[in-house]
Amino acid sequence: MISAGSLLIAIIFAAGVWLLFSRQWLRTIMGILMLSHAINLFILSSGPMKDPLPQALILTAIVIGLAIQTVLLVLAYFAKRYQNINDINNLKEKE
Rank of each mutant, 00 (worst) to 15 (best):
I2H: 11
I2W: 14
I2T: 13
L7N: 04
L8M: 14
I9Y: 07
I9C: 03
I9G: 05
A10Y: 04
A10P: 03
I11M: 15
I11G: 14
I11E: 13
F13E: 06
A14Q: 09
A15V: 15
G16C: 04
W18M: 12
W18S: 10
S22G: 12
R23T: 14
Q24M: 01
Q24P: 00
L26P: 00
L26R: 01
R27M: 06
T28H: 03
I29W: 08
I29R: 10
M30W: 02
I32M: 14
I32V: 14
M34Q: 08
M34G: 03
A38K: 08
I39F: 09
L41D: 13
F42S: 13
F42V: 02
F42E: 09
I43E: 01
S46C: 03
P48T: 06
L53Y: 05
P54G: 06
I58C: 00
I58W: 05
I58K: 08
L59M: 07
L59K: 02
L59H: 05
T60E: 02
I62C: 00
V63A: 14
I64G: 01
G65C: 00
L66I: 12
A67S: 03
L72M: 15
A76S: 11
A76K: 01
F78R: 13
A79G: 15
Q83P: 04
Q83C: 06
Q83T: 08
N86A: 12
D87W: 07
I88R: 11
N89H: 07
N90R: 05
L91Y: 07
K92M: 07
E95L: 00
